[in-house]
Design a binder for these strands. Structure first.
Length: 498
RNA sequence: GGGCCGUUAGCUCAGCUGGUAGAGCAUCGGACUUUUAAUCCGAGGGUCGCAGGUUCGACUCCUGCACGGCUCACCA
């Protein structure tokens, strides 16, 4: 009878695994002592001349990415978290038996290598495999070596595969990590302290958004996943922490889009005794610090737009921004009906309870926002849409609230925080009325927050930065999912088994 | 939620106006001691997203469903 030759990669590998176990080998080891990561190997030996043997024995580990067999000699590529490097070995180096076993390894296997560093005649820095260990057997084959993994759904569902084979993807998340580090670094240097406030909140607050509701069994009560940390951070300013920040996740039970993920990362920071003008300067400095350290320049392209972070940024009131970028003249002197008409003809889905402020904000978002390459500071948001910001003294229908717009995206809000408990209570009441009228995004009345304000919140400036959107700008990504490691997807109908 | 588009081998993709599937990489067998998209010879591999329908015959046409993408709506 002819021997059955299995060619299905998964089955072939499972058989290899069983054979290894049968022969007494451990295919999943617990440690391997490395002398170098590949990057440091390249730094140290990259300069040597072609054809040089260094005599230096090193130990590296990583995933096998390709094989190039040449009969009694073989080349392979191995990659660790830092870099890739070529491996070389031959029957003469390993001996017949071990060489054959080495050739039996698969693409994707995690191995530890010991051997001499040398450079081939063609100038490729390499490690000669004199000893090796299989550290973890890969049972599944990797995607194709030069197209990588393209299928977007698989890339998001199996991000681990995406990261193995698509270098640019790994780059995005390295940049993301840098951005977060730089933000912390900047604020720490300025004397801010980082705090953690509840993500499970009895009253959701701090943003106009629908919350996720969850339940605490032992207390038998509903809790809300936070939509923002804002109200807790301001309680801390009441408590005497004059410079605080929090950098973590918010959750909003709303639509998913290229700009929205149900959980997203936000930086919020608050400083006592300053107003939104000071915050404009601080936000400029903060983002400059991040951009220059990530990009090496303050001017760069995002999705066909040229962004320029050089100071000072353009600063426009919302009405000016509508005029400049939306080519529309609107003002608070207009009648509501007139504003409603303009909003409708701009494509706004006008709801009956919208007042002048909401209408103008909608017109701004519809006609101007997406056209702003920026960054531009758009300031003086209507009181109607900003229930936590201080009113302008000479124009109480406006608030001292600005927003950084860049690449057509809202990067973050900032305002002179409302510290008058009487006014704040009034605003909460307005919000509760909206809630009752079916505006599910409206804010809830937070009695304890009012009580905190009654103890005295110093004049305070606050700001937020949407981290995901900032990373989108810096990595030139159109979709927020490209900058979130595991973006939200519907569950798979069925996962492959056995 | 609406509209448009997509789903074919492990991966990347072809597949015309309907005649029951192809390539490259990967895998398997063979040759090969300096390659790097190694090369050369040979082989296996598909419920063509799922379920119905039309038809002598469906990857192809129709309907529904699932998942995904874009977009609108929604959304600090």
């Amino acid at each position: 009878m002819e021997e059955f030759l299995e060619t299905d990669p998964l089955l072939v590998r499972k058989k290899k695994l069983l054979d290894l176990i049968k022969s007494g080998e451990e295919p999943f080891k617990k440690r391997f002592a490395r002398t170098h990561i590949i990057e440091s190997l390249r730094e140290k030996f990259g300069g040597i001349a072609s054809g040089t043997e260094t005599g230096e024995i090193v130990r590296i580990a990583g995933r096998l990415m390709t094989f190039r067999y040449h009969g009694k000699a073989t080349f392979a590529d191995i990659r660790d978290g830092s870099e890739r490097i070529q491996l070389f070995t031959s029957r003469d180096v390993l001996g017949e038996k071990l060489y054959k076993k080495f050739c039996d390894l698969d693409i994707g296997d995690i191995v530890g290598i010991e051997g001499e560093v040398f450079k081939t005649r063609r100038g490729e820095l390499s490690v000669k495999v004199q000893k090796y260990e299989l550290l973890a057997k890969a049972l599944r084959p990797l995607p194709e070596k030069w197209h990588g993994l393209r299928d977007i759904e698989t890339r998001y569902r199996q991000r681990y595969v995406d990261l193995i084979v698509n270098e640019q993807v790994r780059e995005i998340f390295i940049i993301r990590s840098k951005v977060i580090k730089l933000l912390r670094e900047f604020l720490d240097k300025k004397g801010f302290i980082e705090v953690e406030t509840p993500m499970l909140q009895p009253v959701p607050g701090g943003a106009t958004a629908r919350p996720f509701i969850t339940h605490h069994n032992a207390l038998d009560m509903d809790l809300y996943m936070r939509v923002a940390p804002e109200l807790y951070l301001k309680r801390l300013v009441v408590g005497g922490f004059e410079k605080v920040y929090e950098l973590n996740r918010n959750f909003r039970n709303e639509g998913i889009s290229v700009r929205h993920n149900p959980e997203f990362t936000m930086l919020e920071f608050y400083q006592a005794y300053v107003d939104y003008n000071d915050m404009m300067d601080l936000v400029e400095d903060l983002l400059n610090y991040v951009v220059i350290n990530v990009k090496g320049t303050l001017i760069f392209e995002y999705q066909g737009m040229e962004l320029n972070f050089e100071k000072p940024w353009e600063r426009l009131t919302m009405l000016e921004a509508i005029k400049e970028y939306g080519n529309l003249e609107v003002s608070f002197d207009m009648e509501v009906d007139e504003l409603r008409k303009i909003a409708e003809s701009s494509g706004v889905d006008v709801k009956p309870y919208y007042g002048k402020g909401k209408l103008i904000t909608e017109i701004f978002e519809k006609t101007a926002e997406t056209k702003i390459a920026g960054p531009v500071i758009v300031y003086d948001y209507p009181e109607e849409v900003s229930p936590l910001a201080k009113k302008k003294k000479d124009a109480p229908y406006l608030t001292e609230h600005f927003e950084v717009i860049a690449g057509g995206l809202e990067i973050g809000p900032s305002f002179s925080e409302l510290n008058d408990p009487v006014d704040q209570a009034e605003r909460f009441k307005e919000q509760v009325n909206l809630l009752k009228r079916g505006e599910e995004e409206a804010q809830h009345y937070d009695y304890d927050y009012i009580r905190a304000l009654e103890y005295g919140l110093p004049p305070t400036g606050g700001a937020g930065i949407g981290i995901d959107r900032l990373v989108m700008l810096l990595t030139n990504m159109h979709s927020i999912r490209e900058v979130i490691l595991f973006p939200h997807l519907r569950p798979e109908s069925r996962v492959d088994e056995d």
